[in-house]
Design a protein around this nucleic acid. Structure first.
Lengths: 235, 235
DNA sequence: CAGTATCCTCGAGGATACTG
DNA sequence: CAGTATCCTCGAGGATACTG
């Protein structure tokens, strides 16, 4: 995404314009509704949208979406022609699908609970890894959070090259795994460098399983010092 | 995208939640800014965002994005730690890239001018095609709009199967092309069935070039009757 | 430098009644 | 049935001053 425009500061920027046009409560929901449930009239649309639109707002949004070429109607002269997607609206569907998939994975039922996601905790941990201290052979910490039993995260450690976050099991030999289990609330302070490993292990806020040598060494792979500024990623 | 959730009407819906959280003036712009220009402090962020955010709003948005796991800072205890993307934010980048690409193509400099897009005009035309009247051999109408000289659209006609809209030249034999040139304002009423082909050709609102037989037959491929409700597309 | 606190404005959005 | 018209409310967002 390095190609995401040159100088967003001053230039005309299509992305910014798109947010201005579509960054509101209803526009994208209308597009989705028309895709999922097909062409519909005004009232059906109003009833189908999640959580009640007022008629005046829906009317205004539809005018705008027509103007932008996202939505059209079959016969512009008829009053009761159903609304349906026009080319710009059809072309937006892959983007909406992408947003949907992102949302399925990342939008928590309760916003405040996002920090319980194992990937987020693995992320915090990854930023405290001291690469020179990790084992020479590739090693994985598999992170399970009891508050979020459905997802796990894997932190792949390698002396050459920084730590890597994985959404799937990287599949190393069983002997190279450390299994970390904890409540999110117990792991978070450790991952953030606000509490020591030894304290957390002592009161079982964090538990480690696997080859005894690896388990014993795990705390030494991390620093409690403030994490460095991340290197900007390429992709 | 048929998999876009089952019953959006009542169920918990991640997509809807995502719009609630991110469907505003600033959230997505902040994520983009942090991606494109790397980790930054509060003031840099405020200055970098297109068109001035107030400090209070920026502060509130950052809290929310932190809560959602899109954004994080290096050391939660330090005041002046720069903001950077967290996992949920990184994962949103493909979606933003997709939106950007869509915007480059579909967001007009002037919103009202979207109707001058040849693809939009081709779309309107396509909905008036009478499949039984088109030539038995595949035929293409290439549409150029003088108001929008940078894009063209191709309408591929086939007696078997409905008309097809192309963003690229489908590459048939030269003899199967009809070249349509017009001002958007001259073509639109014809495409919408509000004006007859013969009137528009007579005053040169619309001009056709190509094999004389094809050109002569072109108007007969369309109906002026109200377009049918489109068949729902598969995705 | 990084905010928070305060106050203000405007417009998005809601509710309801009315009309072709 | 499909809106528009009207009126209202609330909150998003802006401007500015102040503080650790």
């Amino acid at each position: 995404m390095g190609s995401m425009g040159s100088s967003a500061k001053t230039d005309y920027c299509a992305f910014t314009k798109a947010i201005e046009h579509l960054g509101d409560r209803w526009s994208l929901l209308i597009v989705r509704e028309l895709h999922m449930f097909g062409p519909q009239g005004f009232n059906a649309l109003a009833a189908g949208l999640p959580g009640r639109v007022s008629r005046s707002v829906l009317s205004a949004k539809l005018r705008k979406l027509e103007e932008l070429g996202l939505v059209a109607r079959d016969d512009s002269r008829a009053r009761s022609a159903p609304y349906h997607l026009a080319p710009a609206g059809e072309q937006l569907l892959p983007t909406l699908k992408s947003l949907w998939q992102w949302a399925e994975r990342w939008v928590p039922e309760d916003a405040a609970l996002a920090q319980r996601d194992p990937t987020v905790l693995a992320f915090w941990l990854s930023r405290r890894v001291v690469t020179t201290e990790v084992p020479t052979r590739k090693t994985v910490i598999e992170i399970s959070v009891r508050d979020a039993p459905d997802t796990r995260a894997w932190l792949l450690l390698d002396r050459h090259g920084g730590p890597e976050l994985c959404d799937e099991d990287p599949g190393l030999d069983e002997s190279r795994y450390v299994y970390l289990e904890a409540e999110a609330s117990g792991l978070l302070p450790v991952a953030r460098g606000e509490r020591s490993w030894s304290d957390a292990l002592a009161d079982r806020s964090v538990e480690l399983y696997g080859e005894p040598d690896l388990v014993a060494a795990t705390p030494s792979w991390f620093t409690a010092a403030p994490a460095e500024v991340p290197v900007r990623q390429a992709g």
